[in-house]
């Protein structure tokens, strides 16, 4: 059924694409922050997404904390893990080639994923949709589950808020300055190493938020992060490495593109993002929103 052009179906697929796009945007945003400000290609990003989902499950299973509580607590815990990782490992790599950061975080990702697999098994754990977000809304051409509406709204608000903090507040300005010229910023009395640690923590905490938001709709299993992070890296490359705004727009846009592909030619849907990546890299090697050197 490759070319079944049914308008309702196309619109429906694009809405679902937008939902996926929100997850891409949240994840690529964190990656862009970490790369843009720390120069680390964080291959462990998907693992922090997965940890967010597993922590939500554990908080529920052991302490009876529901979705809303987990949405606050799990990202904080993910951020704390991020701090430990940054202080013990990542910090040592800022001055050397980006490639070492990539290798370290890739190894870390494999190790953490393996650990979760040993503890929870391959098939993962269940997580229900919170009672307050069950049901669906009729948006004319499809019944959209309420939870997905929430994901879109909350996800976009979260992305814009993060962008605002980094690009439009004094804190963001200090951060950007600290990565540009750490010695100078340090001279102004700002503790640069702490700032970088917190940036890494915030970046991975964003992935943690994404993980909690994904928990009710995706299967929580050890490979969930690895599966999505490959697409997310493509998003970051297309958006332009390190571009905050670019990663948000590209994440949403590629979600839509993927949805469109699913409606018109499903077999191409898994590769359309990578085809887009190749084309963009050839035409604009620094990505759609990347700064020209």
């Amino acid at each position: 059924m490759p070319f079944d052009l049914n308008l309702n179906l196309i619109l429906g697929q694009m809405v679902l694409g937008l939902v996926n796009g929100v997850f891409y945007a949240i994840l690529s945003l964190g990656l862009a922050i970490i790369f843009g400000l720390l120069g680390v290609i964080n291959f462990a990003h998907g693992v922090f997404f997965m940890l967010g989902a597993f922590l939500a499950y554990m908080l529920g299973a052991t302490l009876g904390i529901g979705y809303w509580g987990s949405l606050l607590i799990a990202p904080v815990l993910v951020g704390l893990i991020g701090i430990v990782v940054e202080v013990l490992l990542i910090r040592r790599l800022y001055k050397i080639d980006h490639l070492y950061g990539l290798l370290l975080t890739l190894g870390l990702a494999l190790a953490i994923e393996g650990l979760i697999r040993i503890v929870f098994g391959q098939q993962g754990v269940p997580y229900p949709i919170p009672p307050s977000l069950r049901g669906a809304v009729d948006i004319g051409f499809m019944l959209l589950p309420l939870y997905r509406v929430w994901v879109v709204v909350a996800g976009i608000v979260l992305c814009l808020a993060t962008w605002f903090v980094i690009e439009r507040t004094p804190l963001g300005a200090k951060l950007r300055a600290a990565t540009d010229n750490p010695a100078m910023v340090q001279a102004f009395g700002i503790n640069v190493p702490v700032m970088l640690t917190l940036t890494y923590a915030a970046g991975v905490a964003l992935a943690g938020v994404g993980g909690v938001m994904a928990a009710p709709v995706m299967t929580i299993d050890p490979a969930m992060g690895t599966n999505i992070v490959i697409v997310v890296f493509a998003v970051v490359v297309i958006g332009g490495m390190g571009s905050i705004f670019g990663s948000i727009v590209t994440g949403l846009g590629l979600g839509l593109l993927e949805g469109l592909a699913k409606a018109t030619f499903p077999s191409a849907s898994s590769t359309v993002i990578f085809v887009a990546m190749v084309i963009i890299l050839v035409l604009r090697p620094r990505g759609l929103f990347g700064k020209m050197a």
Partner: peptide
Amino acid sequence: PTTTDFSAYLLQ
């Protein structure tokens, strides 16, 4: 093997 969202297929 890396698919995590099947809602589009269900809709189809």
